[in-house]
Amino acid sequence: MKTILNLYFSTLKVLICSTLVCITVLIFLNVVLRYGFNSGLFFSEEISRLAFVWLVFAGAQLMLHENGHIGVDMLTSRVSPKVAKGMLVLSQVLMLYVTWLFLQGSWKQTLINLHVGAPSTGVSMALFYGAGLVFSVLSFGLITVQLLDSLRKPAGTYTQQISDNPATLAPTQESGVLK
C-alpha cells in the first residue's frame, strides 16, 4: 500500500511540474504571437486557467500528504502531551468537516456547470469545478488516515514528518518558536 501511495505522489509531482511547464509555454507562445505576429492562441488563457486550478489543488494535496503546510506550535508546545494530542485530533476532525463542506459545494457546482461550456473552447465547466471534487475525496481519505494514525499513537510520540527535500529546514528545538 505504501508503494502505491509513493507512486501516486511521485506521479503527482511530475504532473505538477508538467502543468507548470504547459502553462508557461502557452502563455509565452500567446504573448509572442500577439505582439510579434498580431495573432494569438484563442484557447491559451482558458486552458492555462484550468491547468492552474488543477495545479493548485494537486499542490494542496501533496502538501497535505507531506505536512508541508505552515504550522504554529506556540500553544501545543506549552501544554501536556495528552492535551496536545487532543488538539491535534480536534484539528483533524475540523479538517474533515471542512473537507466535507468543500466536497458538497464542489459537487453542487459541478452539477450546475455540467452542461455549461467555456467561452473559447466549449469544454464543460464541470471540469473546472471537478478539481475540487477530486481534491476533496482524496484529502478526506488522507486526513482520515492521519486521524486514525494520531489516535493510534500514544500521546507525546507524534513527530512531524520531514520531507526528503534538503532545502527543508529542520524544526527548532526551542519551545514557543514559530515554525
Rank of each mutant, 00 (worst) to 15 (best):
L75V: 15
T99N: 10
Q104W: 07
L90N: 09
F43H: 00
R34L: 11
T99I: 12
T19Y: 06
L94I: 12
S39H: 09
M95P: 00
N67H: 14
E45R: 07
V53E: 02
G36L: 09
A60E: 03
L15E: 01
V32Y: 10
K85L: 03
L50P: 00
F52K: 01
I47S: 05
G122K: 09
F42G: 13
F52W: 06
F57N: 01
A51N: 09
E66T: 12
N30F: 08
H115D: 14
A118N: 06
T76Q: 07
F37I: 10
G59H: 05
G68W: 01
I16F: 05
Y35E: 09
F52R: 02
V98F: 15
C22W: 08
G86I: 02
A58I: 03
L41E: 00
G40T: 02
G105S: 12
G117W: 06
V83D: 00
V89G: 04
K108E: 14
G40A: 10
R34V: 11
S48T: 13
L29M: 15
F42P: 00
L90T: 13
F57W: 11
M95W: 01
L111F: 12
L62D: 02
N30C: 09
N113C: 05
G36V: 09
T76C: 05
G86A: 13
G36R: 07
P119H: 09
I47V: 15
L75S: 07
W107G: 01
F28Y: 14
S39G: 12
V79G: 04
H69I: 07
L114C: 02
Q104T: 12
N67S: 15
M87H: 07
F43Y: 14
G36A: 09
L90C: 13
K108S: 12
I47D: 00
S44L: 09
K13N: 15
A84S: 13
L111Q: 13
A84M: 06
V21M: 14
V89M: 09
D73I: 08
R78L: 13
G68V: 10
L101W: 08
L88H: 03
V25H: 08
K13P: 00
V93F: 11
A60W: 05
G68D: 04
I23W: 03
L114R: 09
S48F: 02
L29G: 15
N113R: 06
V72I: 15
C17I: 14
G59S: 14
L101G: 14
W54F: 11
A84L: 08
L103I: 07
N38G: 02
A58T: 06
S77L: 08
A60Y: 06
